[in-house]
């Protein structure tokens, strides 16, 4: 039933820190008619903030290399990380529409016998899940065998998927609701909270440059989430996940505050709802204990 094939761009944090996100992406997408093909030899996207800050030209070239790998396969790319989305989607679009940039990048790619042609598109797996022409909410709901009923789930959209809005296609960036709809399709109750679109705090290299600064932003989000009694936070970005998950441990360490809010990538939630076991998702690798959440749904 898989008539939609995509090159699966992994990035770094999903495969190398939260392999459950990778495993669930492969298994959950298969159940809704998407086939993920390995994108052999892909690298870091590379990190738009930490890497692009030094030289945007290398960022263009490195991201273009990843795009060209998929161009050579003749399929669109899908991915599961907002940071990767910014690099791969945005560089693909920029190079398609800016001749000067494209020529500059191709000049460099020539050294490794590659050429950016602009023949493919780039998608976040979550938008494919939402898009009724590809999957759609109904198919997602139909794939659920273990509804996540009785839990309140808050959504963190992250920044680099939808912003800047005019260079994307997701509509309202101030109060979007489409991921809530995806959460609802799993049988869970999405909850709204204060300042939903606040950044996780990690991006732009700030997590590495000034950890407590980035954690202070994260902590603000935690305060707002606790206010509405969320049982878990979900997102579609492993880097945001890292910041919220490991960040809670760091917040405990630096600020002496314990939150204990489980953080799960949407693919992990979908995996649970489709019947995958916590072991199949390596949820034990999460820094914040997911057990209290699992108890409510299993």
């Amino acid at each position: 039933m898989s008539n939609h094939k995509y090159a699966f761009f992994l990035g770094c944090i999903a495969p190398n820190r939260y392999p459950g996100i990778e495993a669930s992406a492969i298994k959950t997408s298969e159940k809704v008619g998407i086939e993920l093909l390995p994108l052999k030899g892909a690298s870091c996207c590379p990190a738009p903030g930490a890497f692009g800050a030094i030289d945007l030209n290398i960022w263009y070239a490195m991201a273009a290399r990843n795009v060209v790998l998929a161009e050579q396969m003749g399929v669109d790319i899908t991915l599961i990380c907002n940071g990767c989305y910014k690099s791969i989607y945005e560089v693909n679009e920029k190079l398609k529409h800016n001749d000067e940039l494209r020529d500059g990048v191709n000049e460099v790619l020539k050294e490794i016998d590659m050429e950016f042609k602009g023949t493919i598109d780039v998608w976040h797996l979550a938008e494919l899940y939402y898009d009724p022409k590809i999957v759609g909410l109904k198919k997602i709901a139909d794939s659920v065998t273990r509804p996540l009923s009785g839990v309140k789930i808050a959504v963190h959209y992250g920044c680099h998927l939808m912003k800047p809005g005019k260079e994307r296609h997701f509509g309202d960036t101030e109060n979007p609701m489409w991921i809530e709809e995806l959460v609802e399709a799993l049988g869970a109750e999405p909850v709204q909270y204060r300042n939903k679109m606040l950044c996780c705090g990690a991006g732009g290299g700030v997590r590495g440059f000034d950890l407590v600064h980035s954690l202070d932003i994260t902590n603000e989000k935690m305060i707002n989430l606790q206010e509405v009694g969320a049982d878990a936070l979900t997102e579609v970005c492993p880097f945001c996940q890292l910041q919220y998950d490991r960040g809670q441990i760091e917040i405990e360490d630096k600020f002496g505050i314990t939150w204990g809010l489980p953080v799960l990538h949407y693919n992990e939630l979908l995996g649970l709802a489709q019947g995958m076991s916590p072991d199949e998702l390596a949820l034990d690798l999460h820094a914040v204990n997911v057990e209290p959440f699992l108890k409510k749904i299993l």
């Binding site: 738009p48 903030g49 800050a53 920044c159 680099h160 912003k163 800047p164 809005g165 005019k166 960036t173 679109m197 950044c199 705090g201 990690a202 991006g203 732009g204 290299g205 700030v206 440059f209 000034d210 600064h213 980035s214 932003i217």
Partner: peptide, 12 residues
């Protein structure tokens, strides 16, 4: 200069 999280809210 290095405290921007590149959240793009300002750009939006």
């Amino acid at each position: 200069l290095w405290l921007c999280t590149t959240c793009y809210s300002c750009t939006d």
